[in-house]
Design a protein around this nucleic acid. Sequence first.
DNA 1: TACAGGAATGGGAGCGCTCCCACACTAGTT
DNA 2: AACTAGTGTGGGAGCGCTCCCATTCCTGTA
Lengths: 361, 361
Amino acid sequence: MSYEGSSGVVNGRQNGRPTLEQVAARAGVGRGTVSRVINGSPRVSEQTRTAVARAVAELGYVPNQAARALAGSRTDAIALVIPEAEARLFAEPYFLDLIRGVSAELADADKQLLLTLVRSEQERQRFEQYLAAQRVDGVLLASVHGDDPLPDRIRELGLPVVMNGRRSEAEPVPYVDSDNIGAGRAAVAHLVGGGRSRIATVTGPLDMYVARARLGGYRAGLAEAGHAPDEALVSTGDFTEEGGRRAMRLLLDRRPDLDAVFVASDVMAAGARGVLREAGRRVPEDVALVGVDDSAVARLMDPPLTSVRQPIEEMGRTMARMLIREIQGMPEGGGSGGGGEVSEEPRRHVLPTELIVRESC
Amino acid sequence: MSYEGSSGVVNGRQNGRPTLEQVAARAGVGRGTVSRVINGSPRVSEQTRTAVARAVAELGYVPNQAARALAGSRTDAIALVIPEAEARLFAEPYFLDLIRGVSAELADADKQLLLTLVRSEQERQRFEQYLAAQRVDGVLLASVHGDDPLPDRIRELGLPVVMNGRRSEAEPVPYVDSDNIGAGRAAVAHLVGGGRSRIATVTGPLDMYVARARLGGYRAGLAEAGHAPDEALVSTGDFTEEGGRRAMRLLLDRRPDLDAVFVASDVMAAGARGVLREAGRRVPEDVALVGVDDSAVARLMDPPLTSVRQPIEEMGRTMARMLIREIQGMPEGGGSGGGGEVSEEPRRHVLPTELIVRESC
DNA sequence: TACAGGAATGGGAGCGCTCCCACACTAGTT
DNA sequence: AACTAGTGTGGGAGCGCTCCCATTCCTGTA
């Protein structure tokens, strides 16, 4: 008897799902009151609340999202934007972990996740259209490049944004990043501690802040250990395996006597490891290796790769949390005529990284 | 002049974005006409169409999605559901590839992707609420278990569904699957062709159809080669690396003379490979190995693993295409009082797999 | 010349909510 | 007794679309 679950076929309505109005009728109250109960307003007597709750349960009522969005101008959805090019580049589990964190946090807040893979300039523009269509309350951006205008465009539209990573040292848009400088520093410290003295590095593309930061950490680590900087020990990769190979070959050419390499990603480290093997260098006996990401790649390498772990899922959670707070703190979009400036102090979070020691050094 | 892009601040409106009504006023036509132009109705004169198009461009008009959904009862969004537990289990790039395919196809059709990671029974129920709130026009389900009631529940709600994989041989719900039987068969044929005669297999959990199918393919392959079946050569894993290790140990205990193993996933193959090394067996000299997934794991193993590749991204595309067609073919949700039965012939697609030969056999 | 039939168009009537104003009704104040 | 100041509550007025029924203006036909 009316306990058939929420199949929606329970009630005798001939078409579609029950509406607020019908719940109100059944509970013997007005629409406004039901709305208040649904939205948890305190301005309802306990008795009424109970009656409405029963009517809701009996009818299997679920508020229509479109109507809510139209009347209330909030969608309870947020967009996560991932540039397609990056999705291939990065260690593969990265984005899945990020999504996992974001998703978990959003689920707790009862918000929906709209995932957008952007694979071309055209799609980027289409995405801006979506935003303008007021489909989401805010935007999460993953792996933004140094010259990406999207973050600023979104703010112009009056939408809250939080980025994963930053475009530069002085990033004006709120972001969550991992401590990439600390990553480089920890890697070098570990290598120095293992008795290595000619420590090279393979960097990412230097137009990305993350690459510069890891390089900066490497240099800081060397300085702290009292080693002199040596540009011949620095080689630029592009976060791909092949890029890692090329960079490693260059390093061996320039400094055949190197005894350790800090590689700015596991995938590049896999490439570097291949080159070392081909050159007859043993890992870790001749050359020690440290990567970044602590991905499956690292665990499966031979020997298993020491790597700096980033708290990816935690970054996702933090981003979502920041965005939700920002949305709540900004009741009506700031897109009115004039500035559209969101003048709050931009927030930033830098989460710690962790060195996972394995046999490669 | 009015070419400031779509910043929306161009026009003199004091708040929010332009509406249909305003476009109509500017173009000197009625609301209905603008709506017709926006939606590409043929019942508009060329002249009027042009005038409206200009007004739209000048005002930077973008239709409000919520209003559309409310009035037209279609959301232009679809949900992709991924069980969280699976997301960890499977070779990691799997879901990212799937998402990539789905996303690409949806972008072409101008639809939004709502990603839902389901990590508990509670969240599964919450997801059903979302569906009832009419947030999406259809649902894509990834890696459904044999006893999962969700597909049927969704159909009861009158929503189109397409699954990735199937729950059983006789799956009533439309699905896209890869040819797992063919995968097992191809692997065995390759091993036989390489002169192996005592070919074992490590399977997935046998309550999953995908595991049974790969096992079936293995058996078919043996039969075709004229080999007698031998249950001592079959060991059950669970798609994890540790499960692969356990299954491999069992096999070595039972049949120390085996000379090849078809492992139903790369991740399990990595585990098996470790056990073989510990047992002093060389790959491929003593034991040949074939995996499934062709993931990064396979490329990075030592030696690189021969593996059966699934067209994951293509599966994603196909799923999305099927769902879109189903949505279009079903103008109004079938959720009226009575049956709610969607009596169309369920469609199914089985995409071919491909053996990628590397040094492990 | 009168009139049917179609093409193009305008605009009313919702869709199902939220917002908010107005109206009871209750107590507490002068 | 006449007031104020709350509480609950009902319901009108939209939100910005789509749907669809007129209405107008052509044409072509009897």
